[in-house]
């Protein structure tokens, strides 16, 4: 294992995070605050409590997931796409590093950023609502796992994309609908019959559900099922990364 390589990749990515601290931290915080103002304060006062939780508090876990997922994908995909685009990836390819170290460095840094962003949003939420956390350890673990698996997913997109347009494509076409239909703003139980069944094919539903459970101790889908879904998604991404580096797909000519 080349630990020095992991260290320098990780630190360089974190340095990029510091350089772009405005975009990285301030903008998610501002947009989340806007969600609170619109959904929590303006509309929320007219919506009855969901599962015994005030609507303003109810949307917090979903909002955190929403931001963490988008940030993970965009950070990780950019982090690996940029060197591919400008050609500086030659150095990674000619250095004595295996894909394990590359992935730990890049995905690890993207995931740490996402966890930080998630925690900052959580702190912001306390400015607006009173929020119990029923299972704090599970909450943190879920935040970390989600950040990791979606950073992994973003990493794959960054390698797959041939240009910056494609880099935006998946987040826009696939991720945004999945996230908005993922139960961030409502409980899946609120959906009418057939829509509820369809929603259960959306992996984000499981994430939001179990994450909400870590706050309020109630879930749309059984916790075990959610955990299984997350594990399956992570395993799928890991397999894809392993295959990409084994075949050199879109990395080595």
């Amino acid at each position: 294992m080349n630990f020095h390589a992991i260290r320098v990749i990780f630190l360089r990515e974190m340095a990029r995070f510091r350089r772009t601290i405005m975009e990285s931290l301030i903008s998610p915080v501002i947009s989340t605050s806007l969600y609170f103002v619109v959904f929590g304060a303006a509309i929320g006062t007219r919506i009855a409590a969901v599962d015994g939780v005030s609507y303003g508090a109810f949307i917090v876990p979903g909002l955190i997931m929403l931001t963490v997922i988008t940030q993970s994908v965009s950070n990780a995909s950019f982090a690996i796409h940029f060197p591919k685009f400008i050609g500086s990836i030659y150095e990674l390819l000619s250095a004595p590093v295996s894909y394990v170290e590359i992935v730990i460095g890049y995905v690890g840094a993207a995931a740490v950023k996402s966890v930080l962003i998630g925690l900052v949003i959580l702190a912001t939420a306390y400015l607006f609502v009173d929020l119990p956390i029923a299972h704090p350890v599970a909450m943190f673990a879920l935040l970390a796992v989600t950040s990791f698996s979606f950073s992994l997913f973003g990493f794959i997109i960054g390698i797959w994309a041939k240009d910056f347009q494609q880099l935006q494509l998946i987040p826009l076409l696939v991720l945004t609908p999945l996230i908005f239909l993922g139960g961030s703003f409502y409980s899946v139980d609120m959906l009418p019959g057939v829509w509820r069944t369809i929603a259960l094919f959306n992996p984000v539903v499981y994430l939001v559900s179990v994450f909400r459970w870590s706050f309020f101790d109630t879930a749309d889908v059984p916790v075990a099922v959610s955990l299984l879904a997350i594990a399956a998604f992570t395993a799928l991404c890991l397999t894809a990364v392993w295959w990409i580096f084994r075949t050199g797909w879109r990395i080595r000519q």
């Binding site: 020095h4 320098v8 360089r12 990029r16 500086s88 030659y90 000619s94």
Partner: peptide
């Protein structure tokens, strides 16, 4: 390896870029 094209991270400082390469090759 010194590649033919100039392919460098544009926003990095010279010292950091060289230290990065050293780390990538497993050196303290």
């Amino acid at each position: 390896l010194v590649p033919q094209e100039i392919t460098l991270e544009p926003f990095e400082k010279v010292f950091n870029a060289v230290s990065f390469s050293r780390g990538l090759f497993g050196k303290a």
